[in-house]
Design a protein around this nucleic acid. Structure first.
Lengths: 139, 139
DNA sequence: TTTCAATTTAGATCTATTCTAAAGCTATAT
DNA sequence: ATATAGCTTTAGAATAGATCTAAATTGAAA
């Protein structure tokens, strides 16, 4: 069976079209890269990858494309407290993140690891809950 | 009994000294303001307040002071996904935040409103958990 | 194949924040 | 009280990350 981690370029192209996004070469490449990594890359990370694998892609295109993809919900934009840079995540499944406070590395934690029950005061209508675990990881 | 919301300037001065911070007039004023509001002010908010109530305070001092106070743990620095600006919170008690996605306003939610049980995978050592509720509030 | 809109690009601009170095204060020892 | 050494404050310059602009390029569709 198929995980996002081994999507082909063709499949990514189809995915973009499904989301009403014109599938240019740059968009396919960037989208494919973000969907097939677990490293939560920043714009700079994606640019560095492009410099090796898709030369001549401008920084503006990296920004435009990542924002576009996040806008239509193909990937997610993340902000973490230790850094000003946006990170991007191709994993839309139920999970949250663990930030290693020593290294700045981000790890995925399955959503099932956290059971919670929330009772908001009157008047608050919840749309989404965000979680971040912080500490250190020794792998 | 005394909540942080009605601390006097003298009490704030004492608090700073307890934390090993020299209690200059600017620091007392900024610290008092952040401790006695529930509005999670940004740097600009604090600067705007200062322009009315402590004229001639420079923007650099607002930044320096807020960072210093957060560094020694008298207040907390917060980042939210809807904005690039840092927010500051004088409430160190057990609570988390609700972000109104329409207005950008931030509300306090008592920590007791959320019960949770976390089972991290092997090797993760938790130091702190961060929560953010998002949605809309009709007050 | 012409055309019109969408995409990409380099560079300028913007925003939040930090840095710099000079000027102003404050505590403490005399 | 006064000197002085070390803080603190300040204005403005500098930086980092992201967005905007307008021109060039590409692509889709008649």
């Amino acid at each position: 069976m198929k995980s996002r981690l081994n999507l082909t370029l063709r499949e990514v192209e189809a995915l973009l079209k499904e989301h009403g996004v014109q599938a240019s070469a740059q968009r396919i490449a960037v989208c494919h890269y973000v969907l097939t990594t677990n490293t939560h890359p920043t714009v700079d990370d994606v640019k560095a990858w492009a410099d090796e694998n898709f030369p001549k892609m401008s920084l503006a295109t990296v920004y435009n494309t990542l924002n576009l993809l996040a806008g239509v919900g193909v990937i997610k934009a993340l902000k973490f407290p230790h850094s000003d840079k946006a990170h991007f995540d191709g994993d839309l499944s139920n999970h949250f993140h663990f930030l290693d406070e020593d290294t700045g590395k981000i790890y995925d934690i399955p959503g099932e690891s956290l059971k919670y029950q929330l009772d908001l005061p009157e008047g608050f209508e919840l749309s989404e809950m965000e979680f971040l675990a912080k500490g250190k990881f020794q792998g």
